[in-house]
């Protein structure tokens, strides 16, 4: 076996997978930042909640009949969409004119509310997540990549490209950007700010659900707060590193974050520096914000 395998190849590959998970969540975060200049703290929990309803539907728990996997996934995606729309209507829209920080604290409130609601529904016990794919994509002497892991990378890449195209090529995408930059003028042109906002949150909810279902698939279980605990902060870091205004930035940022973390964890043992992954990440984030506040791919403003 190549002696470099553990130190280099493994962190690269596992960082890629882990980072894709962050990137998927980061994509939703970037979308909302791009359109409304807010950080959505409830993004990961939208994912958790959606993954939980998908798992409910998959296993026939509670009000759900025992559905086949594709339908269960659909239930999860619809939950994410619905949550996005609901949050927009009940929390975000009344705060249109409030300071952005207020909205951000409100999304933190939504995060806690979703944790509580998830707890009401399923309790603290982890549920096994919906398993979309079961096989191994790649197994070597030092590395194992599951099909779900590979799927996450592919989905992230596709979504990152698709959403970049969405914003540059479609009318709706342009409208979202226009609203974020020029609400008054956009309204004059006849674009409904409210509709656009609802649309943005709907898409963000959907992205959250996709991320949640895939991420819980790689972890194996889902419980209230699980994805927030695992991935929220790295996803934020990914979004900021990549540049919160650039959609492919989430992809790049996610992968960078995943690899940095993985490298540090693999190569710095716990008794030398505990939590080395997070330390390195913090330093990286700090440096990027100080030196290049717009992020790796973002445009300087």
């Amino acid at each position: 076996m190549d002696p470099m395998a553990l130190e280099v190849v493994v962190p690269v590959v596992s960082g890629l997978i882990q980072g894709s998970v962050y990137g998927l969540l980061g994509l939703g975060l970037v979308l909302l930042y791009k359109s409304g200049k807010i950080f959505n703290f409830s993004q990961a929990e939208i994912g958790t909640f959606s993954a939980m309803t998908a798992a409910f539907a998959d296993q026939g728990v509670g009000p759900f009949p025992d559905l086949p996997v594709p339908l269960a996934l659909l239930v999860g995606l619809l939950t994410g969409l619905g949550l996005g729309l609901l949050i927009e209507r009940v929390v975000v829209r009344p705060l249109f004119s409030a300071a952005k920080v207020t909205v951000v604290v409100a999304t933190a409130g939504v995060l806690l509310l979703l944790v509580a609601l998830g707890g009401f529904l399923s309790g603290p016990e982890p549920r096994s997540a919906v398993r979309i794919l079961e096989g191994d994509f790649l197994t070597t002497s030092s590395l194992r990549v599951t099909d779900t892991g590979a799927l996450v990378v592919v989905v992230l890449a596709v979504l990152a490209v698709a959403s970049a195209l969405f914003f540059s090529r479609t009318r709706t995408g342009t409208a979202i950007i226009a609203v974020s930059q020029e609400p008054t003028a956009t309204r004059l042109v006849g674009i409904s700010v409210e509709r656009t906002s609802a649309l943005t949150w709907g898409i963000a909810g959907l992205l959250g659900a996709i991320a949640g279902i895939l991420l819980s698939g790689t972890v194996g279980v889902v419980f209230p707060g699980s994805l927030t605990f695992i991935a929220l902060v790295p996803a934020f870091t990914a979004a900021v590193l990549g540049g919160v205004t650039a959609l492919p930035g989430a992809f790049v940022g996610g992968v960078v974050v995943g690899m940095i973390e993985s490298f540090a964890q693999t190569n710095i043992p716990k008794d030398v520096l505990p939590g080395s992954g997070k330390v390195v990440l913090f330093v990286a984030l700090l440096v990027v914000l100080l030196v290049r506040p717009a992020g790796l791919l973002g445009k300087e403003t």
Binding site: F39, V101, V104, V233, T237, L285, L286
Partner: peptide
């Protein structure tokens, strides 16, 4: 601003 909030969180 929000970046400060994020960096304090991290």
């Amino acid at each position: 601003g929000l970046y400060l909030a994020l960096i304090t969180l991290v």
